[in-house]
Amino acid sequence: MLKKSISLFFVLITLFFVISCKDEVLPKPASQLRLDYPVAKYAHFSNHCPFEFEMNEDAVIKEDKDCGFSIHYPKMKATIYLTYKMVNKDIDSLLRDAQTLTYKHVIKADDIMEQPYVNYNKKVYGMFYRVNGNAATNAQFYATDSIKHFVTGSVYFYAKPKYDSIMPAADYIKNDMQRLLETINWTQGR
């Protein structure tokens, strides 16, 4: 009986030490995801198309058909799509189409802010749209000289739109798009 008591005592002591040696579990403090992007450096872009502009050096540009371009941001999984059209006396139709395309996102958007752009010296007139919320695009613009040239631009991310998740990348690219709009210069038919 004494042997059983001593054995039981050692088992209990061993069990006590095994259980008591665990570290105390503490909850982790709340934290925020930090996304740092490099300071944007811009480079001049021009080719045979009737307009030129500045774009982020970290982006990769690809020419599509009819002087349209895809400007890819591989690290952010986003693309800015630029389209070019000749005005051909149908400026009202082109403006209506650009505005309709933007306001199709009003269903999912929390807010659409319009920012007019006018540069009389370069004859560039346009509108920059900031789309806030879970819309498919977070920014769009159009630029024209009202006579010959019309360019539209929009950004799309390769992810389901959750605005609060992509907001840092969306803001970064919005700034690039605004720079692109503000540096458009017509190279033909001025």
Rank of each mutant, 00 (worst) to 15 (best):
D58E: 13
Y156F: 09
Q178H: 05
A78H: 01
P38R: 08
T187S: 06
G189M: 11
Q178I: 00
I13F: 09
P50C: 05
Q188A: 04
Y84K: 02
L82V: 09
D36Y: 13
I80Y: 03
V155M: 04
K174M: 07
M1P: 08
Y172T: 04
L94C: 01
L95A: 10
D164M: 09
A78N: 01
G189S: 12
D176C: 11
F10D: 04
V124D: 01
A98F: 02
F69M: 04
N175I: 12
C49M: 07
T100L: 13
R130G: 07
S5H: 11
I166A: 05
P161F: 04
T79C: 01
G133R: 03
N121D: 15
Y73R: 02
H72G: 05
F150Q: 03
T14M: 15
G68E: 02
K41T: 13
P38T: 06
F69T: 02
G153T: 02
M113P: 00
Y84C: 02
T152N: 03
S146C: 07
T102C: 10
V87N: 01
L35Q: 12
Y42P: 00
A143E: 07
N56T: 05
Y142G: 00
K108W: 13
A139P: 07
L180E: 11
D111I: 10
K160C: 01
G126M: 03
G68L: 04
L101F: 14
L2Y: 13
M127G: 02
K108E: 14
D90Q: 15
D64Y: 09
K162W: 05
C21N: 15
K28T: 13
T152I: 11
N121A: 15
L101G: 10
F9Y: 09
G126T: 01
Y142L: 00
K62T: 03
S20T: 12
H149R: 12
A139Q: 12
R96Q: 14
T144Y: 09
Y158A: 06
K4Q: 15
R34T: 12
D92V: 08
I166Q: 09
H72N: 12
G133L: 01
G68I: 01
M86C: 08
T187R: 00
F157Y: 13
M76W: 08
T152P: 02
F45A: 07
K148Y: 10
D66H: 10
S154E: 11
Y37G: 03
N119C: 00
V25S: 14
R34I: 15
G153E: 04
K22M: 11
R34M: 13
Q140C: 08
K41W: 06
N185S: 11
I112Q: 04
F150G: 01
S46V: 07
N121H: 13
Q188W: 02
D110L: 13
K123D: 05
K160F: 08
P74H: 06
P116I: 06
V25K: 15
A40E: 10
K89R: 14
L12G: 03
I112L: 07
D176Y: 11
D97S: 12
Y73G: 03
V155N: 00
D164Y: 10
L95N: 11
V151T: 01
I184F: 04
K148M: 08
T144D: 09
Y42E: 03
N138I: 07
R190A: 11
I147G: 00
Y125K: 06
A98E: 08
A98Y: 04
R179T: 14
V118C: 05
P161V: 07
S46N: 10
K148E: 10
N132A: 07
M167Y: 09
N56K: 05
S70F: 13
P50E: 05
H105D: 07
P38V: 02
T183M: 03
Q32P: 03
